[in-house]
Simulated assay, not measured.
Amino acid sequence: MAKLELIATATFGLESVVKREIEALGFKIIKSEDAKITYIGDERAIVTSNIWLRCADRVLLKMGEFKADSFEELFQQTKALPWETWITEDAKFTVTGTSVKSKLHSVPACQSIVKKAIVEKLKETYACEQFAETGAEYTIKVTILKDRVTITIDTSGAGLHKRGYRVKDVAAPIKETLASALVQLSFWKAGRLLVDPFCGSGTIAIEAAMLARNIAPGLQRKFAAEQWSGIEETLWKEERKKAFSAIDYNAEVRITASDINPTAIKAAMANAEEAGVDDCISFSVQPVAEVKATEQYGIMIGNPPYGERIGEKEEIQKIYKDLRKFFTENPTWSLYLVTSDKEFEPQFRKEAADRRRKLYNGRIETCYYQYYGDKPPKKQL
Rank of each mutant, 00 (worst) to 15 (best):
K313F: 05
M300D: 03
E176M: 15
V183A: 00
L219Y: 08
P376H: 00
L235W: 04
S282P: 03
E274Q: 12
Y369K: 01
A352F: 07
E232M: 13
T143V: 08
E129D: 15
L219K: 07
Y297A: 00
K241L: 06
R213V: 04
A225P: 10
G41E: 07
Q380M: 10
E343D: 06
T263I: 10
G13P: 11
Q130D: 15
T203G: 08
G362C: 04
R363S: 15
N271Y: 03
I206H: 14
Y138A: 04
A205Y: 09
S99Y: 02
R357Q: 12
A158G: 15
C199L: 15
E72F: 01
S32Q: 07
A10P: 13
E308Y: 12
Y138G: 03
S16P: 06
L193K: 09
T366R: 01
A91F: 12
V277K: 06
S186V: 01
L185D: 10
Q370M: 03
D57G: 06
C367D: 06
N361D: 08
G64Q: 11
N214E: 09
S156M: 10
A246H: 12
A251V: 04
K92P: 15
T366Y: 02
V277H: 09
I316M: 12
G311Q: 14
V167T: 15
S16Y: 02
S156L: 05
L25A: 04
G13M: 08
I247W: 13
K378L: 02
L160E: 14
A216F: 08
I255M: 08
I7M: 01
Q317W: 01
D374S: 01
V288G: 01
D169F: 02
Q111K: 14
L160Y: 14
G311H: 12
M210T: 08
G362N: 11
D248S: 09
T38I: 08
L6P: 09
L4M: 03
C280Q: 02
L235N: 03
A127N: 13
K62V: 14
G26Y: 09
I22E: 07
S156T: 14
R221K: 04
V142H: 08
L178D: 14
K101S: 15
S340L: 03
T332R: 00
T294R: 02
L160P: 13
V17R: 05
Q184D: 08
A91N: 10
C367H: 05
T38D: 14
S112W: 10
R324C: 07
Y369M: 01
E233P: 05
A181V: 06
Q77S: 05
C55F: 11
I7T: 05
A209I: 10
D354V: 01
T234K: 09
S284H: 12
L337T: 05
G298D: 00
A246S: 11
E226N: 05
A293G: 01
Y126D: 09
I301M: 01
F27M: 09
D147P: 10
K28D: 11
L122E: 15
N261G: 07
I140Y: 13
F27R: 09
I215C: 14
T234A: 08
D374N: 02
G191D: 11
S229Q: 15
A216W: 07
Y306Q: 04
F198Q: 11
F198L: 11
V170N: 03
S229K: 11
A275N: 15
L359K: 03
K175Y: 11
L335W: 05
V119R: 05
F327M: 00
P305E: 12
A209W: 11
K242D: 09
